[in-house]
Deep mutational scan, measured.
Amino acid sequence: GATAVSEWTEYKTADGKTLYYNNRTLESTWEKPQELK
């Protein structure tokens, strides 16, 4: 079967924080998503 690919993209901001963006739900979060833990 196909492996579930994470929908989350990780961005590094200018101040060194990490922003997570979900390509499916168009949601963005500063918290690390469950799927990435």
Rank of each mutant, 00 (worst) to 15 (best):
P33T: 02
D15F: 04
A2F: 12
W30N: 08
K32C: 08
W8V: 01
G16V: 00
K37P: 08
L19M: 13
R24H: 15
D15L: 04
T9I: 14
T29A: 05
S6V: 08
G16W: 00
K32A: 05
D15T: 08
A4T: 13
K12W: 07
V5T: 14
A14Y: 05
R24N: 15
S28R: 06
A4P: 13
Y20D: 02
T13Q: 09
A14M: 09
T9Y: 09
A14P: 13
E27T: 06
Q34A: 14
Q34M: 11
Y21I: 15
L19K: 10
A4N: 13
V5E: 11
T3P: 13
L26E: 14
E35H: 06
K12D: 04
R24A: 15
T18P: 03
G16E: 02
E31W: 05
W30M: 10
L26V: 02
S28H: 11
V5Y: 14
G1I: 14
T18N: 04
L19S: 04
A4K: 06
E7H: 06
E31V: 12
E27V: 09
L36G: 06
V5L: 11
V5F: 12
E7G: 05
Y20E: 01
Y11T: 09
A4F: 12
L26D: 13
A2M: 14
T13V: 05
Q34N: 13
E7R: 02
T25R: 00
A2I: 13
E31Q: 08
T25F: 03
K17H: 07
T25W: 02
T9G: 04
Y21G: 01
L36K: 05
Y20V: 00
K12R: 11
K32P: 07
D15S: 10
L26F: 15
L26Y: 13
G1A: 14
T3V: 13
Y11I: 15
K12M: 11
E35I: 08
G16A: 01
E10G: 03
L26Q: 15
N22S: 02
E31G: 03
R24K: 15
R24E: 14
A4V: 13
S28Y: 15
V5N: 14
S6L: 08
V5G: 13
Y20M: 01
W30T: 10
T9Q: 10
W8Y: 02
D15R: 01
K32H: 04
A2S: 14
Y11K: 06
W8H: 00
W8N: 00
G16Y: 01
Y21C: 09
S28P: 03
E10Y: 07
Y20N: 01
W8F: 02
P33L: 02
G16M: 01
A2W: 12
W30S: 10
Y21A: 02
D15H: 06
L36E: 05
P33S: 01
T3S: 13
E7S: 04
A4D: 12
P33G: 01
L36T: 06
K12G: 03
N23G: 04
N22L: 01
E10C: 13
E7T: 05
P33Y: 02
T25Q: 01
E35N: 09
N23P: 06
E27D: 04
Y21K: 04
Y21W: 10
Y11Q: 07
N23F: 07
Y20H: 01
P33F: 02
S28M: 14
T25L: 03
E31R: 05
L19T: 04
Y11F: 12
E35Q: 08
N22Q: 00
Q34I: 13
K37D: 13
L19H: 08
Q34P: 14
W8P: 00
E35S: 10
A14H: 12
Y20L: 01
G1K: 05
E31F: 07
T29N: 03
E10T: 10
G1T: 14
Y21Q: 06
V5K: 07
A14E: 11
T9W: 07
